[in-house]
């Protein structure tokens, strides 16, 4: 299997507080990986370290054979290969739906206006928001915003999609529409790394589940193994509390 992102001995601390300790793991091409664990276990920080929204304190992030943390490496170019979806959507408030999906293509990838528009419309259709191209973010519901945010990330044609608790800020009735879109993307063979608290969803879509606790990876493996027959006490404890 082709490795897309490989993380070696990653450390991250905020002041004296160690959030990640010696994290090692790999994302392969076409794989859907879910990161689970209680709040404060470092899973969001790990995701944010991967696209360098947080600067790791030590270790290596290897993307297509190159260490991204090298000083020489072009961080901005690297980021275009990663699509990020945030918990709080973070759509650009000054742009409408279509422009949100175009601005990165135009200004960063330097695509032509027409190409950018076609690509944006294609992905807006995927997430079912192609009818709302003229709407401003403030006019949309949470679920709609998150679907647009997914389309915005996809429009950059990234190699890996990163999801940082994409449904945690949504009303319960809107969670479904977002998960449906993500399930569809998983079925289409996209490489996805998802931080989530939706256990049922994680079990269904992921090829691999990674359980984190206190900044370290405790256990990883196929969903049946980690969720049904966990080996570690800490995993069992976590699942007992969340699966009820």
């Amino acid at each position: 299997m082709e490795k897309v992102i490989e993380i070696k001995h990653l450390n991250k601390s905020f002041g004296n507080h160690e959030v990640l300790r010696d994290v090692n793991f790999t994302v392969n091409k076409g794989e859907v990986v879910c990161l689970i664990g209680s709040s404060g276990s470092g899973k969001s920080t790990l995701l944010r370290c991967i696209n360098l929204l947080e600067t790791p304190s030590g270790g290596e992030i290897i993307y297509n054979g190159e260490n991204i943390l090298d000083d020489k490496h072009d961080v901005r170019k690297y980021r275009t290969h990663l699509g990020m979806v945030f918990q709080q959507f973070n759509l650009f408030n000054n742009h409408n739906v279509l422009k949100n999906c175009m601005v990165g293509q135009l200004k960063v990838l330097k695509r032509s206006k027409e190409a950018a528009k076609q690509n944006a419309l294609k992905y807006l259709k995927t997430v079912g928001m192609d009818l709302y191209v003229n709407a401003k973010p403030k006019q949309l519901s949470g679920g709609q915003k998150q679907r647009v945010a997914i389309a915005r990330a996809l429009a950059m044609d990234p190699e890996v999609m990163l999801f940082d608790e994409p449904t945690s800020a949504l009303d319960p009735e809107m969670v479904g529409e977002v998960l449906k879109v993500m399930r569809q993307l998983a079925d289409e063979g996209n490489t996805m790394l998802i931080v989530t608290h939706e256990m049922e969803f994680a079990r269904e879509v992921s090829d691999r589940i990674v359980f984190m606790d206190k900044g370290v990876i405790v256990e990883e493996g196929p969903p049946e193994q980690v969720l049904v027959n966990p080996k570690h006490e800490r995993t069992k404890e976590f699942l007992k509390r969340t699966l009820k």
């Binding site: 929204l53 980021r79 990020m84 973070n90 759509l91 650009f92 601005v103 990165g104 915005r152 990330a153």
Partner: peptide, 14 residues
């Protein structure tokens, strides 16, 4: 909002 900067950074804007 800080999220606006992060979203722009995440798609590779300077």
């Amino acid at each position: 909002d800080k999220g606006q900067y992060e979203a722009a950074e995440a798609i590779g804007m300077g």
